[in-house]
Simulated assay, not measured.
Amino acid sequence: MSRSRPVLLLLMALVLTGCAYSVQGSPAPGALPSSSSEGPKIPTTFTVASADPCTFLTQDDLKPLGPYKREPRRQDDRIQQSCQFVLNDGSDAGITVVTAAYLPYQDAKAKQRLGREVFVEKHSTWLTCTQQGPDMVCTAVVAVHPERSLLVALALHGATEDKVAATLTPLASAALKRLPA
């Protein structure tokens, strides 16, 4: 599965298999207009190109969701520079969180056209949520550099969009604070 594949398929596979994932959205016919003519707001520029995505979140950050079901692992075969965290919430599937050094913000925004702009730590963030069977899957793409973004995705069983988005926001904030400036 290449990076050009929709995120939705990636996360759907993750939910179904517990080990594979993708990023939500589908390619848009053209780029979406920016909500600001100046482009995304990036108050602090971070370098993610050489960062290890498995260091973007810690076990303490994820503790409210549950303990590790298995150790975090790189999933470069799914999305380059990505890491998957599988947490034990008492269910068979568990909870899955994905972090990645991702596409430029504007490119991610164009792929995930059903999203909306929010802000995490004053950084433009494109939030996209999709119901996939009993799971609500949300992806936050945070503008951190003109050429790369930070992706944090979360799938929760039986949750509402508001609940998943509210749970995802502190995770995106924690990951953002760990990026090298």
Rank of each mutant, 00 (worst) to 15 (best):
I79N: 10
E161C: 06
R78Q: 15
T169Y: 03
T130C: 00
P33Q: 07
A31R: 12
F46K: 12
L150T: 00
T169P: 06
P67K: 13
R116L: 08
T130H: 05
T139P: 00
I95F: 03
T125F: 10
S26R: 05
S173H: 09
C54A: 07
D162Y: 03
V137K: 03
K177H: 13
L154C: 04
T17P: 12
Q106I: 03
V144Q: 10
S34I: 00
R70L: 12
D135W: 15
A101Y: 00
R113W: 15
P33Y: 03
V7E: 13
N88I: 08
R113C: 04
C54Q: 06
V141A: 15
G115A: 14
R178G: 07
D92W: 04
P40F: 07
Q81K: 15
P27D: 09
R74T: 09
T160Q: 09
Q131D: 10
Q59L: 05
V98H: 13
P67C: 06
M136H: 03
P104D: 12
N88H: 04
T167H: 01
F56S: 11
L16H: 08
T139V: 12
E121G: 01
L156M: 15
Q81L: 13
R113Y: 12
P180M: 07
R178F: 10
L156K: 13
V137E: 02
R74L: 15
V120T: 13
K163C: 01
T125K: 05
P27Q: 12
N88S: 08
L151P: 01
K109C: 02
D135M: 11
L65W: 03
C138W: 09
P64A: 01
C54I: 11
V164P: 08
A174V: 00
E161S: 09
G30E: 15
V48A: 15
V118C: 00
Q59M: 06
A166G: 04
L87K: 14
